[in-house]
Amino acid sequence: MKKLFALLTVAVIGLTAFKADNGGYKVGDVAADFKLKNVDGKMVSLANYKAAKGFIVVFTCNHCPYAKAYESRIMDLDKKYAAKGYPVIAISPNDPVSEPQDSFDNMKKRASEKGYTFPYTIDETQDVTREYGAKATPHVFVLQKTDKGNVVKYIGAIDDDTENSNPNHTRYVENAVDALLTGKSVATTSTKAIGCSIKWKKGA
């Protein structure tokens, strides 16, 4: 009996380890909803968006030069697609102790200075970041609302030109959302998220 218990314990530990190390979502997975604090103090969940057809979930932050380079393009995505049913939901994944520029107060400042039209939430426990498998800032997950839940349709970069220097660059997120809006399948479903690594809590 004792042996069985030990075996069970090992099995449970094994499972937990596996879950923590699942590498995040893949295209086709159903993404879990979350409840994260927005810069306006209110909690944000995907379920709050009754009329949405889907979401452009962007892991981004204040400090990272890549995130800064993409900031206006993230704002443009919301302006272009929120009305069409795909609002931007921004999540700051970083531990503010490791990166003080990404503190909640600094996030509030940034959002109001720039006039973000979308929620800019903080993942204080970093659980959502882990669950989604965000690796960098910025890292985008395009979700489509279905009967099964919010299905991941695209994971990766916003486009292939952080510096915005090539006018013919490929707009991965726009292409994905445009395809979903016209009932087509997404041609490029995943790309590499190039940016700054996530600043994880030390000793977590």
């Binding site: 690796k135 960098a136 292939d160 030109d161 490929t170 590499k192 190039i194």
Partner: peptide, 17 residues
């Protein structure tokens, strides 16, 4: 001109990190 192409050309398995 394309970050994705450059990184893939160096190595398909490179995440870019």
């Amino acid at each position: 001109p394309s970050e994705q192409v450059f990184i893939d050309q160096v190595d398909k398995n490179w995440s870019g990190a």
